[in-house]
């Protein structure tokens, strides 16, 4: 966090380079990448879906957005989470997919401690931080805990994914001590098959915590599952 403060102080008078194209950036992103990213936003009609759980996604998991998420996660560019989370917030407030009252507690999908230490941050948590700042919703980043190290999922099919995630989560300490009074909104970076979300929801509902839905940055269309990714 300290490193961040210094870096943002320097960026007061020294321009940063856009993490996506390496050209001069205004704030975090260059104007061209910003435009391209914003074009990935889903129209309001497609942003909200009703699976077995009500969901909201900001954009389609393809093109620049896909690359941006990869850069954020694997290229160590946590500052990308700030504009992305903010855009999620803007769109969420505009579409307002969930019924009032809007007193949700936002719980990001956690990483396993080891993974988080490796990466230095949890992208879902950073997105949630920026999202909550903009929407004014309450954030509980320790609501869930990842118990078990799971395999990275981009190479797995839906069944394997579900199996992989079985009992992966448990309640975090704050929720063990006291249950939240408001329904929970789960937040993750990508929604693919919903396996992660289902697993997380199961834990929460078992504990008697209502889950209102899920907010994600990007959502894949179920039809093209060719989830090969060049960013390892």
């Amino acid at each position: 966090m300290k490193r961040w403060g210094w870096e943002s102080f320097l960026s007061l008078f020294l321009s940063t380079n856009c993490p996506l194209c390496d050209r001069k950036a205004d704030i975090c992103l260059c104007s061209s990448c910003r435009r391209q990213l914003q074009r990935c936003q889903l129209p309001a009609s497609q942003a909200v879906w009703e699976d077995e759980i009500k969901g909201f996604a900001w954009g389609a998991y393809q093109g620049v957005l896909k690359r941006a998420i990869a850069v954020l996660k694997y290229d160590n560019q946590p500052q990308l989470a700030e504009p992305l989370g903010q855009w999620m917030g803007v769109a969420w407030l505009k579409t307002s997919p969930f019924p009032p009252p809007h007193h949700y507690v936002v719980v990001p999908i956690p990483l396993h401690t080891q993974r988080q230490q490796q990466r230095g941050f949890n992208q879902a948590e950073l997105l949630a931080l920026s999202f909550c700042r903009f929407t004014g919703l309450r954030l509980q980043s320790q609501g869930l805990k990842r118990d078990r190290e799971t395999q990275a999922m981009y190479s797995l099919n839906p069944e394997e994914r579900a199996e992989n995630l079985k009992n992966a989560f448990c309640l975090g300490t704050p929720f063990q001590k006291r249950l939240p009074r408001s329904p929970v909104l789960l937040l993750d970076d990508i929604y693919t098959t919903g396996a992660t979300i289902r697993s997380a929801r199961q834990i929460l509902t078992q504990a008697g915590i209502p889950v209102a839905g899920v907010v994600t940055l990007a959502k894949t269309s179920f039809n093209h599952e060719s989830a090969t990714n060049s960013y390892h």
Partner: peptide, 21 residues
């Protein structure tokens, strides 16, 4: 000196920000 710092870190200077700092 701010401009030089930008040069050494290979980053361009934002003049208004530099003026404020």
């Amino acid at each position: 000196l701010g401009v030089l710092l930008g040069l050494v870190s290979d980053r361009q200077v934002k003049p208004l920000g530099l003026l404020l700092v």
